[in-house]
Computed example of a mutant assay.
Amino acid sequence: MTTTDHGPLLRVEDLVVEYRSGRLRAPKRVIDDVSLEIAPGETLGLVGESGSGKTTIGRAVLGLAPVTSGRILLDGTQISGLRRRERRDRARGVQAIFQDPYSSLNPSMSIADILAEPIREGTPASRRERVRELLDAVGLPADAGRRRAREFSGGQRQRIAIARALALRPRLIICDEPTSALDMSTQTRVLGLLRDIQARTDVSYLFISHDLGVVRAMSDRTAVLLGGRVVEEGTAEQIARDPRHPYSRRLQMATPVADPVLQARRREERATLLREQARSAAA
């Protein structure tokens, strides 16, 4: 795991998350003994199929999912298990960008009000100036603040969501499938914006996705999640090019490539791997 001389910005230690679906039923374990670290200015990609638990880890870091056991520390200070008010105070250091830009923005509020809402300090004039700074940071004109979310495209709405996440100058942003609802060209532009913001601000990202190709493009390191457990971790390039775990290889083979011959070969390799795993499970 990559750290700086001062230690990681985020440390997740032996995290367990369980949910109860009924009073008499045994709890369902959705995160099982996960440990992760993110250094300042680093992006850790968390990749896995739907149901692997990756969003639950992000929600646990945000204080939105219960932590059954283990610890979550931000810059050496524990942020898991805090009371609501304490969690709100700590939330300044961690913000989120969610998957759906259509439902994550209040349609009844102007963009200026959406961006100014989390900003408590300063005068009205200083908050208006901060809103202008945020719109400029994500490539939107100043007059966008007077409009409402329904007037913008999906890519523009996700830029607004990014601006809102930046409002409190967080040190860590949880990016939960932030481009999966966008078309390919818009996705590329939004990913480029996230990289530019990181270069300017040194913010860290926990980048959550089911797409190994997107994770490779965004991340310094990648952790592969299966059934609530990390089954492989390494540099983003190593996981994308030479994964060791069979599940990681399945994700690699499912990643689209431009070469039709290579794409066909990957489909056949994935089918062969799935057949081999099915035979091993039946043996």
Rank of each mutant, 00 (worst) to 15 (best):
I174H: 02
A264M: 10
L226H: 13
R157G: 08
E237F: 10
R11P: 00
L212M: 09
S185Q: 02
R265W: 06
D32M: 07
I79P: 04
M1A: 14
I174R: 02
D113R: 10
D202K: 14
E13C: 03
A271H: 11
C175K: 06
I114Q: 08
V16C: 07
P170Y: 01
Q252K: 15
G45Y: 03
G76I: 12
A39R: 00
A181V: 05
A282V: 02
A91E: 12
L166W: 11
D196F: 05
A167L: 05
E269V: 08
P243M: 07
D211V: 01
D242Y: 11
L194D: 01
G228A: 09
L64H: 03
L10P: 01
R90L: 12
S104Y: 01
V47S: 06
G76L: 11
M253S: 13
S110N: 13
R85D: 13
R157S: 08
F207S: 01
D75G: 14
E232D: 03
A278W: 10
R132M: 11
R90A: 15
A264W: 07
L225T: 03
L182H: 03
E121T: 15
T43C: 11
P101L: 01
Y247C: 02
S180M: 02
R71K: 14
R128N: 12
R127L: 11
L62H: 07
D202S: 15
S204W: 02
E18T: 11
R216D: 10
T188H: 08
E237K: 15
P101V: 02
L172W: 04
L134D: 09
R23V: 14
R29Y: 05
A167Q: 10
L10F: 08
D14L: 00
A271E: 13
S209P: 02
R88K: 12
R29C: 10
E133H: 13
R87I: 02
D32P: 07
R150G: 05
R130D: 11
S108D: 12
G145C: 07
C175M: 12
S209F: 01
C175S: 07
L166S: 12
R265L: 11
P178V: 04
P40A: 08
S209A: 14
E276G: 05
E177Y: 06
L212I: 06
S69P: 05
Q156W: 11
D14I: 00
R83N: 15
